[in-house]
Design a protein around this nucleic acid. Structure first.
Lengths: 144, 144
DNA sequence: CATATATGTATCCATATCTGTTACAGATAT
DNA sequence: ATATCTGTAACAGATATGGATACATATATG
């Protein structure tokens, strides 16, 4: 799979840890270890979904559009995944076959249920949780 | 996403509806509306996972290796998906950044939970369910 | 035994997706 | 004015996917 959910979550968690200071795409990119364009592409999608806002120009950057405890990984997934389909159906099964004629209708509901379960689980984690867990990891490492 | 889970489920459901008669890759391919090689590739994976058996030669074909009510969509997913990862992490975040250093460890558990929820939901559906639902759809259509 | 049938697998190809990169117009602070 | 920063287009390389051909191997049947 692609790593866009991971990178988008990284971006948001990073912005949250800056505690209100605007994050430039270059700064975020150095944390993710990729290039600023990829970050801006994802930020563009996050902004369209209402999760972030960006300020152009000097001193600008990205901020969270709402509190970190009100942004879940489900929101992130919804923002970066256009169709939200983990599994695809096969195009045009044979309509002359009793199985081919109906398989997609039957599969569709089962797959939808599975994807719903995935989203429900993602909804349990907020960006605030992520930032908290990352901070806790750092404390652990500092003590060791 | 790819449609391998859909096609593999189609294959197994098709075999089940044949009720013990071996299904050739060509016959299955005509129901799925693809080519026999793709079917054989997937059957090869299903056989390795212990879900089907195949008989070479004249009169041969594929059979279920165990009763249809003992094969779940989770089994199918496990058979056709090599790593079973819906989401990937991003390679090598910046270890010098407090966020980059820990994001993957934190994300990993959250993503694993989501994928587990997906698999648990898939486990609720068996190939017997699929065959039953497909048959029910045909009855409905016949009455209409 | 010879033949037809069918699987298992390798190889090739076209297309799509993903990630990284460069480039540049537009917005904004100083 | 100028430097900074976003938004987006365009392009390239790598990988995944689905489709197609080919052929060695296994097996039932006459």
């Amino acid at each position: 799979m692609n790593s866009r959910l991971a990178v988008a979550t990284h971006i948001l968690t990073f912005i949250e840890t800056l505690a209100g200071q605007p994050a430039t795409s270059e700064l975020i990119a150095s944390s993710v270890n990729t290039n600023p364009t990829l970050i801006r592409r994802l930020l563009s999608q996050l902004a369209k979904a209402g999760l972030t806002t960006s300020q152009m120009g000097s001193g600008g950057g990205a901020l969270l559009a709402r509190p970190a405890d009100q942004i879940t990984l489900r929101d992130v997934y919804g923002a970066i995944d256009d169709d939200g389909e983990v599994f695809a159906l096969h195009d045009q099964p044979n309509p002359q076959c009793p199985v081919g004629r109906n398989i997609n209708a039957v599969l569709k509901t089962r797959i939808a249920a599975a994807q719903q379960a995935l989203r429900d689980e993602l909804a349990k984690t907020t960006i605030a949780d992520m930032a908290h867990d990352v901070a806790a990891q750092n404390l652990l490492a500092a003590k060791a």
